[in-house]
Each structure stands twice: as C-alpha cells, then as structure tokens.
Write a protein that binds this DNA or RNA. Structure first.
Lengths: 150, 150
DNA sequence: ATGAATAGTTAAACAATTGAACTATTAAAT
DNA sequence: ATTTAATAGTTCAATTGTTTAACTATTCAT
C-alpha cells in the first residue's frame, strides 16, 4: 500500500462509514423507532442469535463498559423484553434471555428490516455483496486481534 | 439475490458493521480521546475537507436535527476550534470555519490516525481495499437516493 | 483463611440526540 | 406593499448511551 494513499483512504473510509452508519441507522429507526432505539435493537438481535448471554459478554462484544450494558439491559427489562436469572452455581453471574414478548418484538423488527433491505439489495450483484461483507468481517477480525495484542 | 439469503446477509452486515464501528471508534478515541469526542473529530474532519459550511449542511450530511449540530458546534466553539461568521447578504446564515487552533488540532489527529491505519492496512491487498470502499460508497449513494425519494 | 479477582450495580457527570417552541430574516403570494 | 410562507439557527427539556469510580456479592488462589 503506497504511503501517499493512506490519507485518501482514511478520508474516504471515515466519511463513507460514518455516512452509511447514520443513514442506515435512520432508516432502521424509521422502521422500529417507536418501539426500540437502535442500540436496544442490536442488543435484542445479539441475544436472539446466541440465546443466552451475560452483561460481561455484551460489554465485550459491543466494546463498552459493563455499566453501559447495565443501563441498556435495565431499560429492556423495564419493557418486559428480557429476563434475568442468576446462575445457581456461580451466584455472581446473571444470565440474560429474551422473554416471549422480546422474541415477538424482535421478530417484528426483523420482518420490517427484511422488507427494507429487500428493496435496496437488488442494486448489488451477489458476488459484490459477498466480497464486501467478507472484507468487512476480515477488518473486524483484525480489529479484534489488534485489541487483544494491546 | 435469493430470498432466503437476505436474513443471513442482514444478520452478518448488522453484526459486523456495528462491531467494526465500535472497535474502530474505540481505537480512534484512544488516539484523540483526550482532546475530542469522535463526533467532534468527524465534524472537524468534514469542515477541514470543505473549508466552510453551515449548520444546516452539517445536519444534512450527518443526518441529524439542526439542534444536535448546534450543541456540537457550541462545544467546538467553546474550545476555540471553530469560528462563526454571519452572512452579510442573508443574515439568517452562519458560516462555520476552522480556526488556526482547530486546524492544528485536526492535523495532530490526522497524524495519529494515519499511524494507526498504517499498521493495520498492510493486511489487505490494494485491490481488496479499493473494491471494499467502492462498494461502501455505492451503498452510501443508494441510501442517499432512497432518502431523497421519500 | 485471607487477599485478589470477577460479575454486576449504582451514582454522578457528560455528549449526542429529538422535538417543540422560539427569534430573526428572507421569499412568495395576492 | 402587506401579509403569509419558508428558512437558518438557537434554546430548552427530556431521553439515551457512555465513562469512571466506588461499591456489593461472590468465587478463586495459594
């Protein structure tokens, strides 16, 4: 990678990633905004994928302090979307799971987002999307490793 | 794009984009965090690129309400990083520019981020990066057009 | 058995955000 | 020309997400 190009790449990457994040976020919020914030939606999405998790795990995945997770979890709990259950063997640990209401709400979000994406995704070739997400996931892995090395 | 794949693509995209955003954000914050928040850095970056802009323009670009911009601008102004000058012809308009102090601080941020990226970017082929950013910019344009159509 | 580590919460403070009401100014309509 | 619309920006109150530090409760290590 030529030295002189890094500046331009950084400029382009930061500009485009920020713009896409804000605009995609606004679009998603337009679909689910009355029920959930985007961060709450992401949290439900992760919990739906893994089934059960802990606050520490969420803090690790989302790369924030545990107290930030406590706040989000508390709000989801107040809405009746998640359950907290203490581990009987290690009573420090609290397991988090979706309630039926949480699963239902997540399903509704999923459907709306699915419809949204369906209308946008046709502009891309199958191959282009795969390549894009593959590189994105590679970048993610590099960032994860970089963080571990510190 | 096969119908059955959309769900998986959405899952992968949302997971990876959120993860990268948080981790890259944390990394950048580690470089510039004592001086600026990430949003403040993005704002300076944009102003450095375009030279002069208005609050309305920033609100459009960042896809937030103008009152959100007022708050960010106010904080940057309090730090002496930007100037506000009224348009003499249309006195509703306020032009925003970087002060010398703002330009200097931005340059320092730029250097640190440049060094950071330099260490990460070697893991990618030139072609892979270009393809990735091209697709990202294409996605951004699609989102911008989608918003205009509403 | 004691000291260190871990899981999670609480509290104070701050940044970013929205939405509604507001001021000041300009443009449009008739 | 006067009134009405629209535009640029600010202010204020409320909410969310965030960090840091102090804290409780529990488990691990040696």
């Amino acid at each position: 990678m030529a030295e002189t190009n890094i500046k331009d790449l950084v400029d382009r990457y930061i500009a485009v990633s920020q713009s896409v994040e804000k605009k995609a976020g606004a679009l998603v919020k337009g679909q689910i905004g009355s029920d959930l914030t985007n961060d709450q939606h992401f949290t439900l999405r992760y919990m739906n994928q893994v089934g059960t998790c802990t606050s520490s795990e969420l803090a690790e995945v989302f790369d924030v302090q545990k107290s930030a997770i406590t706040a989000i979890i508390q709000r989801l709990w107040e809405k009746g979307l998640i359950e907290r259950t203490r581990d009987e063997k290690d009573r420090r640990v609290v397991y988090l799971t979706l309630t039926e209401k949480g699963k239902d709400l997540y399903s509704q979000c999923e459907k709306r987002i699915h419809n949204l994406v369906e209308g946008l995704i046709t502009k891309f070739e199958h191959h282009e999307i795969n390549q894009f997400i593959n590189t994105f996931e590679k970048l993610n892995q590099i960032l994860i490793n970089y963080k571990l090395e510190e």
